[in-house]
């Protein structure tokens, strides 16, 4: 009987497996296990893992921390809007605010150095999409996400918002500069 009729045999569960089915199930299951264990493996041996570190906070507290960093490390301003460009010391905490419809401030990092990057939204959901690296992270309001990042190559990168955030979503883009470490 076909799939649109009741099985002809009442005890259909006793029909032996065809070899083709049995073989495929074993192969497919092994592959499933490989894919499963690949994720913990990468946590141990891989270098690209999204941080689990996040804190609940308020927009006011987060903006205050960002402002303190901007006051300390601003090296110049960019564009007609005078957006501060900050050059924090390697290894330090770096803050980035996502809001309707810009990122603030502009970060300048050193190649090969590691930073603790904090990101948070002060209003709606936004996206952190670093181009052309193509690293993509969700940004929530009220959740301060802390991740360590290590830029590998100098150049001008873009941060674009890739979570729909309203009518001017397509204008929400910024830059991130990576420069050679200063000789001291």
């Amino acid at each position: 009987m076909t799939a649109i009729h009741s099985p002809a045999q009442r005890v259909w569960w006793k029909q032996p497996l065809d070899r083709v089915e049995g073989t495929w199930i074993v192969i497919a299951f092994v592959w499933c296990l490989v894919m499963f264990f690949m994720m913990p493996y990468w946590h141990i041996y891989g270098k690209q893992n999204l941080s689990n570190e996040a804190y609940r906070t308020t927009p006011e507290a987060y903006v205050a921390k960002t402002q303190a960093m901007v006051d300390k490390y601003t090296v110049r301003t960019a564009t007609e809007q005078n957006i501060p460009v900050v050059h924090p010391v390697p290894g330090s905490d770096v803050y980035l605010i996502a809001r309707l419809w810009n990122f603030w401030p502009i970060l300048e990092l050193e190649e090969g150095q590691t930073y603790k990057l904090h990101i948070m939204s002060t209003d709606w959901l936004h996206g952190f999409s670093l181009q052309p690296e193509n690293i993509n992270v969700q940004i929530h309001p009220g959740y301060e996400h802390v991740m360590t990042i290590t830029p590998t190559k100098e150049g001008t990168y873009s941060i674009i918002c890739n979570e729909y955030c309203g009518i001017n979503h397509h204008t929400m883009a910024s830059k991130l500069y990576v420069v050679k470490p200063k000789k001291s």
Binding site: K47, Q48, L130, N134, I135, M147, I149, T150, P151
Partner: peptide, 8 residues
């Protein structure tokens, strides 16, 4: 993935 910036 292994070629993008290290992060964790």
């Amino acid at each position: 993935l292994s070629t993008v910036w290290p992060m964790n």
